[in-house]
Amino acid sequence: MERVFKAVMLGGAGSGKTSLRNYFLYNSHTGQYTPTTNSDFVSTYVTLDDEEMVAVQIWDTSESKPDLPTTQSLLQDADGVMLFYDGGSKVSLHALERHLLTIAAACRTRRHKLPIILVQTKCDLEIDDEQRAECERAKELCQSRLELDDIQCIETSARTGFGVALAFQTIAELCRSQWRGAMTSDEDERLPKVRHSRHGDPIAYGAFELETSTGAKTRTRHGTAARRLKRKLCRLFCFA
């Protein structure tokens, strides 16, 4: 059974998380801003530099209803985090600090290091010298808060597609490297359960609402009868 890596996207409202994921999956950009109201994931394959294809659940998160327990519940079994910010928005840059505190709290309860990359969005737009300095400060802030020697910062644009594939390839590669390292160090211990693939076409979509209490339970929201049937068939053949 294949390993499916869970990559969680975090960032302030309007930072471009959903647009970047949509461009990566569908090679399209609408230019319309629709706030994400509930956390959801899309399962797909990412081709790495060595031509290996790895399965990844790419989780988008809601900033319209920011909730610390919800975010922490997503990070508990995450294999990697993509931290988004809009280099031209001070609000987006300031939102980084809150997310860094959440990530730092989650890392303290984990046995293994959580791979993290910084993703600067909307790089097709011009930014002034002050905003450019803010972007550099954002990288330094991430390194200090998370006690990292260095963190990869990838510039992207969902409008032109610049850097989009690189961002998702990078986090997938870091997830795979971390997992292989954990297998080597814990070969005599029980590893975390394999996250079953939910691949449909091969992209499968799942929308979730997470309870805000500690030990949050996840409730799957089904749409039409056809979707429910499709999910049952997916579970039957993918053992999900």
Results as ranks from 00 to 15, higher is better:
Met9Arg: 08
Ser19Glu: 12
Tyr23Arg: 15
Leu25Ala: 02
Asn27His: 02
Gln32Ala: 02
Pro35Trp: 01
Ser39Ala: 11
Val42His: 12
Asp49Pro: 05
Ala55His: 04
Ile58Asp: 00
Ser62Thr: 15
Leu68Arg: 15
Pro69Gln: 10
Gln72Ser: 09
Ser73Leu: 00
Leu74Glu: 02
Leu74Pro: 00
Ala78Glu: 00
Asp79Pro: 07
Gly88Ala: 15
Leu101Glu: 13
Ala104Cys: 12
Ala106Arg: 07
Leu118Asn: 09
Val119Asp: 09
Gln120Lys: 15
Gln120Glu: 15
Ile127Val: 15
Asp128Thr: 07
Asp128Ala: 10
Glu134Lys: 04
Arg137Ser: 10
Ala138Lys: 04
Glu147Pro: 02
Ile154Ser: 02
Thr156Met: 08
Thr156Lys: 03
Ser157Arg: 06
Arg159Ala: 12
Val164Ala: 09
Ala165Gly: 01
Gln169Ala: 01
Gln169Phe: 00
Thr170Cys: 12
Arg176Glu: 13
Gln178Leu: 01
Trp179Pro: 02
Arg190Asp: 13
Val194Ala: 08
Asp201Met: 10
Ala204Phe: 15
Ala204Tyr: 14
Ala204Trp: 12
Tyr205Gln: 05
Glu209Val: 06
Thr214Gly: 14
Thr220Leu: 12
Gly223Pro: 06
Ala225Tyr: 04
Arg227Gln: 14
Leu229Trp: 02
Arg231His: 08
Leu233Val: 15
Cys234Val: 15
Leu236Val: 11
Leu236Asn: 04
